[in-house]
Amino acid sequence: MKIRTMEYFIKEALSSLKRNGLMSFASVTTVALSLLILGMFLVMVLNLNNMASTLESQVQISVYLQDGLTDHEMREVGTRITKIPGVVQVNFVGKEEAMNRFKERLGEQQGLLNALGEANPLPNAFEVKVDKTERVKAAAQAMMQFKGVENAKFGQEVVEQLFALTKMVRIFGLVIIVFLALAALFIISNTIRITVFARRKEIGIMKYVGATNWFIRWPFLLEGMMLGFGGALVAVLFLNETYGILIHQVYETLAFLPLIPQYPFITNISVVLLVTGTVIGALGSTISLRRYMRV
């Protein structure tokens, strides 16, 4: 393809975008919205996955003891725990230490705890490490039966819940995304159809003077791709900005939430969105070209 021809295609596509200003605007907006939502779901699913795997790598069982046990009784529980198959380490975490750790985690917001006064609602506990992840569940269930044990929690539960949540978000997101992608496809193909219709005379003459089908198609294809890319660009800019703000907010207030850092995470998602937008645009115009141009 000659450079002059490429120039001609781009010029034609741009002038057509301008001529159908309102339709172009509607297309870009629809694509932008669809891809923005796609982007948000991607951010959400990937972050949930990330949280789940972070937690999974630190499975340990927290065994909370009932209040009012004597030292002897507590030691008894500890001994019984060590005898459970698979248990490799048992640490006692007293009420005070638990409180200190909690304060540390809250960081600047420890002030919140002042409301409690001298009272310490946190229980005495054991932290138990097990040699294999598969054994965690059975071990925790066994400990739960011990006298003096209030509850035995392990990360696995949270992990499983997170994975379940991820799965739900994924399915829900997929449905919405498919729906929105179809809407974007429809509006782009409609825009191109209008362009093709407005220029049917020109297309007829091009055919009579021997233009190849691809020569006739390219400007329309480019127009669709520009619409898709434009919409994606809007979505990407918006997503980048909001994720930046979100990260900032989370670091300030909920520091323990393990969010994926902005870069290169958002850059990768941006590439996905831009490619998707362009492909949707190309597909949309292809549909119209096949149905309305007979070339």
């Binding site: 002059r4 001609y8 005379k201 003459i205 091009m206 003077v209 021997g210 020569f215």
Partner: peptide, 24 residues
């Protein structure tokens, strides 16, 4: 006739050469 109303006489004729990628 089938001329394009929004192109000049010159552009109408040149159009036939453009679409088969003749040089300027």
């Amino acid at each position: 006739y089938r001329l394009l109303p929004n192109k000049t006489v010159y552009e109408n004729v040149a159009f036939a050469m453009q679409v088969i990628e003749s040089s300027r």
